[in-house]
């Protein structure tokens, strides 16, 4: 129960920061995705089986809070958590060599997955793709987004790890 409450508070804070703080700091694209990075960090620390339902729940709450089609972010977070599950958790939490490279790869892959799915949803809604991938899908924009997400991931990872040890959560 304690774990559920603490994870909910962290998720809640991440959504509030994502909608009410980050857009003001970044003034338009690219903006890092704090909630996505929280889910990724949670999946890396807790593993697929434990964090699967948190990913679904986080996605649903995020969709309700951001007027997005319900289920879209749940799908994105599920894909992210599922991708992480293919790699050894022991290997991925080591901050050396391969472990660090894997973590950055997770960040990059999840950023790309998220932007592709959200992008396709926008294209589907407006029924056209012309002019979308130029300004929004360029390599520069994606690179900056991945950079921001990398920083946010390590922040989320540290916060989650500290929180788990402080509150003695398994």
């Amino acid at each position: 129960m304690k774990k559920k409450f603490i994870y909910f508070v962290i998720l809640f804070s991440a959504i509030v920061l994502q909608t009410s703080v980050l857009p003001l700091i970044f003034h338009g694209r690219p903006v890092g995705d704090l909630v996505l990075m929280f889910v990724l960090a949670g999946a890396v620390l807790d593993g697929f089986a434990t964090f699967l339902w948190w990913a679904v729940f986080a996605g649903a709450v995020y969709d309700f809070a951001t007027y997005t089609t319900v289920g879209l972010h749940s799908l994105i977070f599920l894909l992210v958590v599922y991708s992480v599950s293919f790699f050894s958790r022991r290997l991925s939490v080591e901050f050396k060599g391969v472990g660090l490279a894997l973590l950055i790869l997770f960040v990059a892959a999840s950023s790309v997955i998220s932007q592709i799915i959200l992008g396709w949803q926008t294209i589907f809604e407006v029924q056209k793709a012309h002019g979308f991938f130029g300004p929004l899908g360029g390599l520069g924009v994606f690179s900056l987004e991945i950079s921001y997400n990398t920083i946010l991931f390590f922040v989320c990872f540290a916060i989650l790890k500290k929180t788990k040890s402080f509150f003695t959560i398994e």
Binding site: Q18, T19, S20, L22, P23, L24, F26, G28, R29, P30, V31, D33, V35, T66, Y67, L118, T122, L136
Partner: peptide, 14 residues
């Protein structure tokens, strides 16, 4: 205004 599009795409305000 209490929040904005979290993807930074300048699409909506709340």
């Amino acid at each position: 205004v209490v929040s904005q599009d979290p993807q930074g795409m300048g699409n909506w305000l709340e």
